[in-house]
Design a protein around this nucleic acid. Sequence first.
DNA 1: GGCTAAAGTCAAAGCGCTTTGGTGGAACCC
DNA 2: GGGTTCCACCAAAGCGCTTTGACTTTAGCC
Lengths: 343, 343
Amino acid sequence: MKLKELSSLLDLSATTVSRALNGYPEVNAETRARVLAAARRHGYVPNQMAQRLATGRSMAIGHVVPLSEHQTINPIFAEFMHGAGETYSAAGYDMVVSIVPQDKETAAYEAFARHHKVDGVIVHGPLRLEPRIDLLDRLGLPFLMHGRDERPEDTYCWLDIDNRRAFRRAADFLLDLGHRRIALINGLETMNFAARRRRGFEEALAARGIAPDPALLRSGEMTEPYGHKALHELMALADPPTAFLASAITIALGALRAARELGLAPGRDVSIVTHDDDLSFLSNAGAAPLFTATRSSIRAAGRRSAEMLIARINEPETAPRTELWEAELTLGSSTGPNPRQTP
Amino acid sequence: MKLKELSSLLDLSATTVSRALNGYPEVNAETRARVLAAARRHGYVPNQMAQRLATGRSMAIGHVVPLSEHQTINPIFAEFMHGAGETYSAAGYDMVVSIVPQDKETAAYEAFARHHKVDGVIVHGPLRLEPRIDLLDRLGLPFLMHGRDERPEDTYCWLDIDNRRAFRRAADFLLDLGHRRIALINGLETMNFAARRRRGFEEALAARGIAPDPALLRSGEMTEPYGHKALHELMALADPPTAFLASAITIALGALRAARELGLAPGRDVSIVTHDDDLSFLSNAGAAPLFTATRSSIRAAGRRSAEMLIARINEPETAPRTELWEAELTLGSSTGPNPRQTP
DNA sequence: GGCTAAAGTCAAAGCGCTTTGGTGGAACCC
DNA sequence: GGGTTCCACCAAAGCGCTTTGACTTTAGCC
């Protein structure tokens, strides 16, 4: 069943039928009702390929996933996709995923733009100075960045959480508990979010006149083994920390495992605060969460990012949309007063 | 730069230019060279939307990911996508991912078919009797299944590993080491792969006249905590097993953690064999792997599955393509002779 | 040299939709 | 009652490609 058949069935022109279906105002209400009914009855669905050719819009959003031989789609990314995917389904957009070797990332964006394959892209994991912003501006491809970089913040669309503030609050919380030797087990500090978290952490220390000890600052890929190793190494220092601030729940789990191996009870002998992306398969929610955490759902971020990008695509001339989310600080059982506190 | 412009630039018809670019034989070799050179020089790239409309092919492969609130894209799935994505990029196909609530899965396939959004789909995680096969046949959508179901095997395309044989060999290996109480910590046995693995396991026992003990058979979602819990429970039995056969490396890691908590040395006090999907971020390779394992790369399976599906799409009339891969049995340090063996 | 076959090219007709630029007629206005 | 406005609809021209069917050469054959 194609548009022409349907329109001749209804004794109407294809124009009117098309307009009726697409909600244009210049169609008689009665006619529109007739058209919609007939379309439903005969199971008419417009051919998307034809629509796309005619409108020049692809009704698809792209995600470029650069991967090396050694790394795969990580859980945080997958969870974000999950959220974005929900929005796409609801809004009638397709999600096109381009999985490419790292050195072909630029080419992948160029291919998206050149072929008009997608109406926009979502950019993941911005570095401190993100070259993809310039690339996409040059290509004229609308985008939304999940995260920010260091440039002025109103020149492009982004959704981010207030990483600096979250880690400042987390550090303040530990300081309030009397901790003075606090270690930061951070993500890779070439990434913007990690750099901001570190800043927040250092601000909190500075506000209490504490100079950060470089020996207590770690940066690395956010895996469980990394957290495990980091805690062991930190506890082996001459003056070990009493509290740990972890950038991901995977890290915190590793740290927890190491603490238990050392016979240290979390919340009593050592305190751990982590950032929690609220991953569905690593839940830290419930009445008594394992970890005290700064929490912000990455799936919700995916959902919202997709919405913002679609809005942007529909109104390209408006000012860039940005959203800064506050992480909530949730109390768990992994924190307690500094056991070495001098009253 | 569009086809018409290019062709008038070359003083040729659009027909000839199109044919030259698409490798049709009825074009003079010299003409073709001219066309290709001009296309490159002017940076001409055909508009995919127009191509798709004209040819009726979408040059895209679909993946439907049904998700509930509680589960997210799992690592095994992500790794498969990684492999498939490599093939798609190389072959000029797009990957379209439809992330939908579980109850909308059928609708997602129907949408793919109705809109001609994709030329084919890859079906993940077949159950023992897989309803999606009938659905896709009815929709006329070419597909390749990663795994099989129980119906006759030459009626549709699939790529699978020989799960039965792999687990038979793994069990035989443990039996040869003198183990007689062997536990199976399997995946969900509503899934086909898990059912086959169990069959292989039971065959090996039967061949030595051992009746399987239901208390030693576990089935569940393949997570680390599940493996941890299962080993603890199994070791608490009056007559605990001396060896464990795990269906995934995540399970094996959980079991290992539990074993260490009980002060049991793997390879001496207990033996663990696992299936290993060769996940890049959980590597069990190298000179001295942690686990003795039946290994088969899921990323390679993704790559190959995509190739097979594309071949199928290009030649729909041929017999269904199937491929059965053998898993390799690799020796690690997690297995040893039965310590309770009576000589 | 006349006939057929093959090679190389082209004009035009799709593919199935959207959108432009009308048109006819009813309604409104003084 | 003639002019204007608005409403509801339509024919036809795209969108940018592929493919059909036909046409002109040139080559091959007896």
